[in-house]
Nucleic acid binder design. Structure first.
Length: 512
RNA sequence: GGCGCAUUCGUCUAGUGGCCCAGGACGCCGGCCUCUCACGCCGGUAGCAGGGGUUCGAAUCCCCUAUGCGCUACCA
């Protein structure tokens, strides 16, 4: 359903149309891109944008492109580029074309595409759709100030729009720097046909002759994006809401270059609890931080997908495969969403519980290497990760929880103050511990089932509840108030270690 | 200031004129299960920003107001 894009005086009659590939009987594959600016790590907002692009590409058998927008040379770094790619791969968002996967539309870093922008600018200059502007920054600032005083929107005056060739040449000979501006329509409206918001129109008179190329020769964002999207054959531009007001500018550039426009979908922002755009101020906000805190990509993708998109009224849990199958732009909402750590945490626990144990074991192995348990599991007679997964999996909400839940299997227990206090307050504790140590020493085979049987019998004989008996034992062997199931814990810990710790705790229980 | 976007339980959302005195999920509260903590199960709390229209009928359509956010850069 093509719709007129410009209805202005200058171009209303030209019948420029927006092409919406993939939305009708068009057979061309969808080509989408994620275009981060490497001025920081991959943020959850950016991750969601990348995810939606990736989902659409994978769902339709299209192409997902990673393009680095590094024209802000003062803030872009190589390290950030590497980090962003690492985070994307960790999430499972792989790209078909990108800085390390050159395709016929490359290169994929804007600073390596300067020649392409130069050619595009020259063409526009040649066809008089753009012109050189020699106004100094001071002159522009004065215009802006004047507009402000008159309480008018600032629009470039167009002072250099009609410079004669000899005037232009004279200025250049004078050594005055210049920018290249688009000769933009001064009247009419530009309408953006957004897949999420519908038609949004902008008054051309309020936009003016935007700068295409800076005095430094580096293109501005709006120019580079329009050139790249066009040259890379992008069919759908899916990006943050903050770009909506930029879209008419890009449409104007495309129009001047006589290129078709892609379809646009502007995603609402992700907010912090205070309803301002999510940022570092709100705590964890980069994908990397979530990885370090023990979140798994399945959960982060699921959560991010649901932040702005829904499948139906009921379903909240999706595997990444299901997301690929079910995602659609049509069901993306238009309202900004507050990032809810509680829900993400719950979802992370859910996905951890649903991981196959072997898979969880692999994840933990990698994760533990970065913690104080590094190198310990499975060495020196200590249990391996796979032995502990049955005890810990259903209790973990993050991979980090595994460390807290199982450290006493690998290291001598450190007695928590609260646990110690509890042990000392329990008058029966010494007796229970002495008895437990005795019972345990006679158990054969030393497995969870046999231990359970014996300890249950003991509780019966002492006429106390099982919990009453187990709690001192728990504290004795772990130093904690919370552990995996006691019978399994004792079995995996081993007879000798268990009894030693219980004996040691008897003294503590007596307040010695 | 100008322009633009948005507004359903605390949070994420379902809802496209009657199926809604609004459904699901997280959180919270209560209960069950239970060796602790989780998990699981059962139940509960809580919302259509406000005001005008249109209509037999509005969360759904229109207008206004309010609030929030974005853009208004030789940042992206």
């Amino acid at each position: 359903m093509p719709s007129p894009c410009f209805q202005g005086n200058e171009c209303g009659g030209t019948g420029f149309h927006v092409k919406v590939p993939g939305m009708d009987n068009d057979q061309e594959p969808i080509r989408v891109r994620f275009a981060p600016s490497p001025t920081g790590h991959l943020h959850v907002g950016g991750a969601r944008t990348a995810l939606y692009n990736w989902l659409l590409a994978r769902k339709s058998g299209g192409i997902f492109i990673l393009r680095i927008e590094d024209t802000d040379i003062s803030r872009s770094t190589e390290d950030n580029i590497r980090q962003i790619m690492e985070s994307m791969l960790w999430l499972g968002l792989d790209w078909d074309e990108g800085p390390d996967r050159e395709g016929k539309h490359g290169p994929y870093r804007q600073m390596q595409r300067l020649e392409i922008y130069r050619r595009a600018a020259d063409e526009l200059l040649g066809s008089d759709k753009a012109y050189r502007c020699f106004c100094s920054k001071e002159e522009i600032a004065a215009e802006r100030e004047e507009a402000r005083r008159a309480s008018r929107a600032y629009v470039y005056s167009g002072r250099c729009a009609n410079l004669k060739p000899e005037e232009s040449a004279a200025c250049e000979a004078d050594g005055r720097g210049f920018v290249i501006r688009l000769r933009a329509p001064s009247g009419g409206t530009t309408v953006v046909n957004d897949l999420i918001r519908g038609e949004v129109s902008f008054d051309n008179a309020l936009i003016g002759d935007i700068i295409l190329v800076r005095a430094s020769g580096i293109p501005t964002y709006n120019f580079a994006v329009a050139v790249d999207d066009s040259q890379m054959g992008i069919t759908h531009v899916i990006r943050g809401d903050d770009h909506l007001p930029n879209t008419p500018k890009q449409l104007m550039v495309l129009e001047a270059m006589v290129k078709p426009a892609p379809a646009y979908a502007h995603l609402p922002l992700i907010l912090g609890p205070d309803r301002t755009p999510l940022s570092k101020r709100h705590g964890a906000s980069s994908v990397e931080e979530f990885r370090v805190r023990g979140y798994i990509p399945e959960a982060l993708c699921n959560y991010l997908a649901l932040l702005g998109w829904s499948y139906d009224a009921e379903t909240t849990i999706f595997t990444t495969g299901e997301l690929v199958e079910k995602f659609s732009l049509g069901r993306v909402g238009a309202t900004a969403a507050v990032f809810d750590n509680d829900k993400l945490l719950w979802m992370n626990g859910y996905h951890i519980r649903n991981l196959e144990p072997e898979k969880l074991s692999l994840r933990l192995e990698e994760y533990i290497a970065t913690t104080r348990l590094s190198g310990l599991p499975g060495t020196g007679g200590r249990p391996g990760i796979e032995e502990l997964i049955p005890l810990a999996q259903e209790k973990m909400k993050t991979l980090a929880d595994f460390v807290e839940l199982t450290d006493f299997f690998f290291l001598p227990p450190t007695y928590e103050d609260k646990a110690l206090a509890k042990l000392r307050k329990d008058e029966l504790a010494p007796e229970i511990l002495i008895r437990a140590a005795g019972i345990l020493s006679g158990i054969e085979p030393y497995d969870a089932e046999t231990i359970e049987e014996a300890l249950r019998r003991a509780a019966d004989e002492m006429d106390i509840r099982l919990g009453k008996l187990l709690q001192p034992v728990r504290i004795a062997v772990s130093g904690k108030l919370v552990t995996p199931g006691m019978f399994e814990t004792l079995a995996v810990l081993g007879k000798e270690k268990g009894i030693d710790r219980i004996n040691a705790a008897i003294k503590m229980a007596r307040n010695d």
